[in-house]
């Protein structure tokens, strides 16, 4: 699904990712844990194609394609989805038409015809009910005035409808109380299949109780310093970053 080879990335001459390598196969869930400033957000932004980052060397192969030359939206259409840590407000842009535009952009790039309005409405209704998103919320503008929980639910709603091959959950647990965390995790788990993959980026082990990873990687100073199974996260929780490296 995704292979990152020897990736070195800098921002304003400061190296953020240093010879970073990672391989993710179909059907796997990987957790990337690391302290502040370890390069977690840079990793997700570089994968998604955000500029401001200087790629010094390395390769990113997604679905057998080197994606360096692809723009942000081309990567998205290829099946990459980022659930943002801080989803931005789009005043006046209503949730459902936004979602429909996104779906249709993808369909158009695949040479398919636009989604049928009734089918779309049905899918939105079903997914919103599952995620505890009220009808009132669906009438609002994208992320405008949303609580932390609402924002993350809306991210997962979009993930559900866009049905990506690879999802990156960037600190999805931040700003969530335990109930919202459970709903959001349930929403993500429902989408897990044999042919898609998930990367969970997080500070804390807490989220991994609900979205159980196959692999856990510890990222320090732009490099994976240890990898293991889900028990590594528990060990990390006990010992802290300083003592585990």
């Amino acid at each position: 699904m995704l292979e990152i080879k020897d990736l070195t990335v800098s921002v304003e001459d400061k190296i953020i990712l240093n010879n970073f390598s990672l391989k993710i196969n179909q059907g796997e869930v990987h957790a990337i844990m690391g302290p502040n400033g370890s390069g977690k957000s840079t990793l997700s932004n570089v994968l998604c194609g955000k500029d401001n980052y200087k790629i010094k060397k390395g390769e990113i192969i997604f679905k057998e394609k080197n994606i360096f030359e692809l723009s942000i939206d081309e990567r998205a259409k290829l099946g990459l989805f980022l659930a943002f840590q801080y989803p931005v407000e789009l005043p006046g842009v209503s949730i459902t038409p936004f979602l429909k535009t996104a779906i249709n952009s993808k369909l158009k790039s695949l040479g398919k015809k636009e989604i049928d309005s009734l089918e779309f409405a049905k899918k939105v209704r079903e997914a919103s009910e599952y995620l505890g998103i009220s009808k009132e919320m669906l009438k609002r503008s994208v992320n405008e005035g949303f609580s932390g929980g609402e924002k993350k639910r809306y991210e997962v709603l979009q993930m559900t409808l866009l049905n990506p091959d690879l999802t990156i959950l960037d600190e999805t647990d931040s700003g969530l109380d335990i109930d919202a965390l459970k709903t959001v995790s349930k929403g993500v788990n429902r989408l897990k299949r044999k042919d898609n993959s998930i990367v969970v980026i997080t500070h804390y082990q807490r989220l991994l109780d609900y979205i159980i990873p196959d692999f856990v990687h510890i990222l320090v100073a732009g490099k994976i310093v240890r990898s293991g199974d889900k028990n590594l996260a528990l060990e990390l929780e006990k010992k802290g970053y300083e003592n585990i490296i």
């Binding site: 723009s71 942000i72 939206d73 998205a76 980022l82 943002f84 931005v88 789009l90 842009v93 535009t101």
Partner: peptide
């Protein structure tokens, strides 16, 4: 903002679609 454009593009909207949807929201 760059973040608004990034958000829209990450959802598969092209640059022009992103600008258009944001401005249309502003004019709603």
């Amino acid at each position: 903002s760059e973040d608004q454009l990034y958000y829209c593009q990450q959802r598969g909207l092209t640059n022009e679609e992103a600008v258009s949807i944001i401005v249309n929201g502003f004019c709603k």
